[in-house]
Design a protein around this nucleic acid. Sequence first.
DNA 1: GTCCAGGGTTCGT
DNA 2: ACGAACCATGGA
Length: 220
Amino acid sequence: QILFDRYGEQRWWPGDSAFEIMVGAVLTQNTAWINVERAINGLKRDKLLSAESIAACPPERLAQVIRSSGYFNVKAQRLQSLCRWLIEQGGVAALTRHDDSSLRQLLLSVHGIGPETADDILLYACERAVFVIDAYTRRLFSRLAIFEGDEPYEDMRLAVQEALAEHITSVTEAVRLYNEYHALIVQHAKATCCKTSPACDQCCLRAQCPSASVLASNVV
DNA sequence: GTCCAGGGTTCGT
DNA sequence: ACGAACCATGGA
């Protein structure tokens, strides 16, 4: 609620289609979003924003188009793995036949899709009730002394979902809350105070934020 | 020059 | 099950 009052509704994920969201989820792995936007614009410019065109594109050319998003060689492979999988599934629309758990397992079986990328796709592209745990979420909850921060991914995801359960009465509500919550955490990280202003007195989710320990001690 | 970004895989212990 | 190296661009 504090984050929502400060930043307002985020309307995530940025992107015009479920497929574009999936592509963005892979490209933003350990990468600033601004560099992902350039890569996605390049894909659009070269008519490469479809599963079929990416799957058929020579890897070297695909890598050059997405160059700005970093790790371009591995990400070109990962995009093609994702697209080949989507095609054999029968397209994005055909994913609705799987339940949440099955779809999660299937996504994790795709080369280059780990827990967080899978959950980005499940929540933001497929509108499934799955809470996304990223590096910012770990920092936020560890600095609030709710978690240590180094818990296994699934432990943290399930614990957060259980903690939020009492505020939720339907799947639709869960999707909306998980969507907004994760987006707000990332927005808070982007709005870093101590990166631009060294004297900030609030934790900004930056890795080396000098006020992180202050926040933790206040809460404890 | 240094830090780090909306991670994942692979290969040691 | 966990740690470390590797992948690589680009803004602050």
